[in-house]
Every structure is written in C-alpha cells, then in structure tokens.
Computed example of a mutant assay.
Amino acid sequence: MLKVKTFLAESPFVDPRINLAIEEHLLSHLSSHSVILYLWQNEHTVVIGRNQNAWKECRTSLLSEEKGTLVRRLSGGGAVYHDLGNLNFTFLASHLSYDFIRHIKVLVAAFRSIGIPASFSGRNDIFVENRKVSGNAFYQGKAGRYHHGTILIDVDIDRMVRYLQPPAAKLKAKGIDSVKSRVANLKEFNTSLSIDVVKKAIKASFLEEYGGEGENISLSDIMKKEEVKTLYKKYSNPSWIYGLSPDFDVEIENRFDWGHVALGFHVREGSVSQCHIYSDAMDGDLIASLAPFLKGVPLQGDVLAKALRRNFPESMPQEVQEMACWLEKDWAHMF
C-alpha cells in the first residue's frame, strides 16, 4: 500500500464562505503522496451543489429572512443544511494517494468505535439502521481530488426540512415521502455523543488507517493569504451563488438513477441561444461541460441528442447516453 504523509486541519471558523475558501486552497496546494483530513462546521447554512438551481433546491427567501447563509460549493451532488450540530469532513489527496474506499473505511470505523453501527450503502451515503447520517460529494482539481461530506450529529432536522425542497421525483425515486423520514442524527443512536467526541474518533481512525503523525496545518496562517481572500470573495459573490436567472423560455426535467436533471433554454429563432443544466449528479465536472454543446442547436430533442453524442465519439458516459435517449424519446417533436 502506498505510504503517504498525513495532515490534520480543523477550522475555528463557522462562516461557510471562509471554510470553502480554505478547502479550495488546500486542494490547490497539495503535495504529492499526501492526504489531509479537514474538519469544519458552518452555522445556519444551506450549501447547494455546483450545478443546482438555488431557487428550486432551497427556500431562499425564508433562509434569508431567518438570517441564514446560502453558498454554492465546487462539488456536484445535492443541497444540504448545516448548523453547529453538523460536522463536515474533507479528505484531500494527491491523485496518486486518493482512495475513496479508504476514506469511507475511516468514517465507518470511527462511527463504530463510538457505538454507532454504521454501514456504507447507496451511491454516496452512510447509513445507520436504514437512515442516512452522512452524505458525500467529490471534486477533482489539478493537484489532486477531494471527497467531502456531512455528518449529522445533532442537527435541527425541522429547520433542514423548512429550507430544503428537493424535487418530488427525487423523493419518489427513493421510495419515501419526506426528507425527515430518511435522515437521522447520530445522537439518536448514542445520546452521549458530542461534536468533540466524533472529531476525536475520526482523527484517531484516520491516523490508524493511514499512519503518520498527522501534522497540523495552521488555518489562521492560511487565512492571511491573498489567494484565500480572493476565494472568499468568489464564494460570497451572488453571481457564483445564484448563477443564471431561471427565467427561461423552455424548461424540461427528468429523474435518472444517477440524479435529477433540469435543462433551461433561452431560445432565439428556433435555436438555443443559451442553455443551463441543473443537476445533483455526482460528476459535477461532466454536467458543467455539457451546456455549451447545445448552444446554437435547433430546439428539437433528436437534434439536441445528436449534439451531445458527437462530443463523445470514443467513450460516452452513462449520464450523457441516458440524457440523449430521453431527449430523443420524450422531446423529439414537442418543442
């Protein structure tokens, strides 16, 4: 097994814009054969995935009225609610050192060490007694990749339900009728738990799995860097958070096994003048790359499908193939 150098970073900040800026900075400056465990918390925050429509995934007005913060992250996946009863983790690793299975092993072993019978299931979640306690998302940069996620320890589930509004098709696909019915706090299974107890268990499990001393990274020093200040401005910028106005001429959506997709089109003289694709699919980079392929294409499902396919002549991802089939089948003559 590849020997790596281990690092630990724990944020003293609860502002999501600061924590996301630090996370991106750590990713950009990874050394080879290194793995960082970064633990962080956000106060009263909704975090949406890279390709999601803020207005459709979150009750944005209500969140604002109740002094909450909305941010958009780099990774794909769905919207999540953070408060100080939630603990976020990020495993950042160089390309050679990245190993998702080892990350999950660290988390599951940590939970079990504090009396939580956790198991990994589904496409990206950790469950206890068939209820989700942790979700994961992913991003790949030039220097390496990260895998990050939430751990529900003592989250205000009622607030979570108030702010998040996942599409009905997503809930139906999972065989449930509410957000509340499928998630659980770790404290339901061990009432003596605290954030600090979970942090200590994860750090111990991380060092047990990877070895090394776990050199500490000073995030207070990192916050002084101009690059991090610039990243903070990016994550605070409304154009990054909200993206393109949702006032489209045509909108269509569908639910696939790998996620929900909504396409919004601005149309001029029968062709696509601008397109935006919203999705909670885990491959955020792939989804983000697709919209330009449809610009200038006649607004016909079969023609749009061909435009997608011709950009993947050698190996076509499952998501692209299934989107193309859906456009051909359901929208060939309906625009």
Rank of each mutant, 00 (worst) to 15 (best):
I116R: 03
A118W: 02
A118Y: 03
A118S: 15
S119Q: 14
F120Q: 14
S121N: 12
G122P: 08
G122V: 13
R123T: 05
N124R: 07
N124L: 02
I126G: 01
F127M: 13
V128A: 08
R131Y: 01
R131D: 07
R131A: 05
R131I: 03
V133P: 02
V133M: 01
S134D: 03
S134Q: 06
S134P: 04
A137S: 11
A137N: 06
Y139N: 08
Y139Q: 06
Y139I: 04
K142Q: 10
A143K: 14
A143E: 12
G144F: 13
G144H: 11
R145Q: 15
H147K: 04
G149E: 01
I151F: 03
L152M: 14
V155S: 09
D156G: 07
I157W: 10
D158H: 09
R159M: 08
M160P: 08
V161Q: 09
Y163H: 14
Y163R: 14
L164E: 13
Q165M: 15
P166G: 10
P167F: 14
A168D: 11
A169N: 07
K170T: 12
K174Y: 03
K174P: 08
G175E: 12
G175N: 11
I176P: 03
I176F: 08
D177F: 05
S178V: 13
S178G: 15
V179H: 10
K180L: 11
S181Q: 14
R182E: 03
N185Q: 11
N185L: 07
L186S: 13
L186I: 15
E188V: 04
N190C: 13
N190T: 05
S192V: 11
S192I: 06
L193K: 12
S194Q: 06
I195E: 02
V198R: 01
K199L: 06
K200R: 13
K200L: 09
K200I: 02
A204C: 10
S205P: 06
F206L: 04
F206M: 07
F206D: 04
E208H: 03
E208P: 00
Y210G: 03
G212R: 07
E213I: 12
E213D: 14
E213K: 15
E213L: 14
I217S: 10
S218E: 10
L219T: 02
L219Q: 05
S220V: 07
I222W: 04
I222Y: 06
M223H: 01
M223P: 00
K224F: 00
E226W: 02
E226Y: 02
E226P: 01
E227G: 07
E227K: 11
V228T: 09
T230V: 04
L231S: 01
Y232N: 03
